[in-house]
Write a protein that binds this DNA or RNA. Structure first.
Lengths: 346, 346
DNA sequence: ATTTCGATATGAACCGGTTCAAATTCGAAG
DNA sequence: CTTCGAATTTGAACCGGTTCATATCGAAAT
């Protein structure tokens, strides 16, 4: 019928529409972008042919000339950690319906994968990146990207670098949960920290120690092991703390995240250490499983979904897509008191 | 110095490299693609200038002309469900280092979001899609996409459509876990199914009922509620089953996934129903939390990571990137017997 | 009747690669 | 000293949009 297009093979192009409608390609372009001065009558006429031919603009061609924002990368260590998954969902929410693609980059905390993605992002001309700290510091390529353009960090602030970031109050949260444990009468308190040199690790560790110091507990004497935020590293830490004579054991272990706390609990279950009567445990993140555990884990909640959303909004703001910056980029944390901490009977 | 490029603004293009190196753009193109006949000496010469200028090909321009595969979509209801997160990780693994970006499409089980992504995928000319069944059937736009090209379904087979898919043996798994419950002496068994009309829901339900029928239990009399795979819907189902006189309660509830089983367990905890002594519960998926629960959840394991990987490999095979198809696309399930099912004392 | 001007419409040039027919180079054979 | 063919190299055309300087047109103003 009338809909026969010249290029017999592919989908119709803007030129096909122009020819069929008897107008110029410039006019068609103006119509599909709702820009420029197009007479109402012409617009309708062109739109009819767009619909008739089933024309849909090719975004690849489109973004070649006009560097409009169209996709952003989301770099994350893994999705097993429910907190990370929550941030991912938040980012997707924050993007909203801005026609922006979210590229998932799982690094498994390997530097070479981070470098790999950094390269891809450069060649694919992604318009921005949201970076979620893993167990190591961002790779040099990524930092270079950050310096050059639009990278928003979640839960990581780089010293001396003016890079936008979203975070929660790790320090206050850690301080509060440690105080809660101390208030229950604990004095021999061990700490399972996150990977060294990470901002979150340091903040949480500092928070724990501040409260310990405030209670006149010798922080240097407090047993400390650095984990890597994995369940397994929590298990290993427990193995270290709960060796030797029972009377020297800590009565409480503060963990820098929930996964490690779960690892500690698993060790206790396997070795008949009663939680919380013999050993109190706390976590950080408040993942869904924390509430499900027996005993339910006392932990610090941080709003992963909101943080992800804020990160996306911040990035969109900085790339000019969004007029206003997000209302908040620094979120409060709150202690969730459950049953994994018991009072010390002395 | 020698590295001054004409276009003062952006990054160097293939033409800049050609000019600086004193060769034609065709030669540069051949060098960066390691294709065609290029003399070894020329290659090295050009490569030196590529490095010197810091040239990196623009993939947008590249994919405009040569429709090479460069990104695939991953459509998933959400990432809160750890099974979905595992599949996502598997997909990323399966892609390997093929320079393919994974575009994340979280639909929150909303049809309009699925339609939205289908449109984006068409305009972005994605090279393929991996579709993870949510709580509803795939939208018409997506089916259209599937018919047209490269969509691989995970855990969903469409009746009458020749669409590639990856799945696990839901039927056998459901049958086996139901048999286990029956073997423990249960006769009054309730079922919390998944969303109706979904392949996984139907398979699991069929498996449960087959075992019930084999034990001469009237399947029609067995209480049944259709959930939507969410924790909340499990809770609601429990509310239904555990109303009325205690003596008519079921002694076991088979759930079509772990999240719903967790919902049932939460109801029990809140209403002082002892699990498993008063009520036995089973799930499906074997998410990490299943093992952590108290009592640990008896469930059916399916290899999410492997399934995701196979889906990616299947897609890559079908789009010609990968010479061989994956070894397996139909995975075995296995029952994980833990503590949430007790023997009936009669 | 001529000029002026805002509203529209036009289409060549460009974005940065890939392709491939045609030109060039070079060594061996005649 | 040609001739011939394989190996290289070249560069115009193209992919499908966006841009914007320029052309067109009708009505109002002079």
């Amino acid at each position: 019928m009338s809909g026969s297009r010249s290029s017999g093979n592919g989908r119709p192009t803007i030129r096909d529409v122009a020819r069929e409608a008897g107008v110029s390609i410039g006019t068609v372009s103006a119509v599909i972008n709702e820009r420029g001065q197009v007479a109402e009558e012409t617009r309708r006429h062109v739109q009819r042919f767009i619909a008739e031919l089933g024309f849909e603009p090719n975004n690849t061609a489109r973004s070649l000339k006009s560097r409009r924002i169209s996709s952003i990368g989301f770099v994350v260590p893994d999705l097993d950690n429910p907190f990370f998954a929550a941030v991912a969902e938040g980012v997707q929410r924050g993007i909203g319906d801005n026609d922006i693609l979210l590229m998932l980059c799982i690094t498994w905390s390997q530097t070479e994968r981070e470098e790999y993605f950094a390269r891809i992002m450069r060649t694919q001309r992604l318009d921005g990146v949201i970076y979620l700290t893993g167990t190591g510091l961002p790779s040099s390529s990524l930092l270079e990207l950050a310096r050059a353009g639009s990278v928003v960090f979640v839960d990581e602030v780089l010293p001396g670098m003016d890079v936008p970031f979203v975070s929660s109050n790790n320090l206050a949260g850690a301080r509060a949960v440690a105080r809660h444990v101390i208030d229950q009468g604990h004095r021999r308190i061990a700490i399972v920290g996150g990977p060294p040199r990470l901002w979150t690790s340091e903040q949480r560790l500092a928070g724990f120690r501040e409260s310990l110091a405030a209670a006149a507990i010798d922080t240097d004497a407090a047993p400390y092991v650095a984990g890597d935020y994995s369940e397994r590293s929590g298990y290993l830490a427990a193995e270290r703390f709960l060796a030797g004579s029972r009377k020297h054991w800590p009565t409480a272990i503060l963990c820098a995240n929930d996964l490690m706390a779960i690892g500690v609990m698993r060790y206790c279950r396997e070795h008949d250490v009663a939680v919380p009567s013999e050993l109190s445990i706390t976590g950080f993140d408040d993942i869904a499983a924390a509430e499900l555990l027996q005993p339910a884990l006392t932990t610090v909640a941080q709003p992963g979904l909101e943080m992800g959303r804020a990160a996306a909004e911040l990035l969109l703001h900085r790339t000019g897509v969004r007029p206003e910056p997000p209302a908040t980029t620094h979120f409060q944390t709150s202690v969730r008191i459950r049953n994994s901490v018991a009072a010390v009977v002395s």
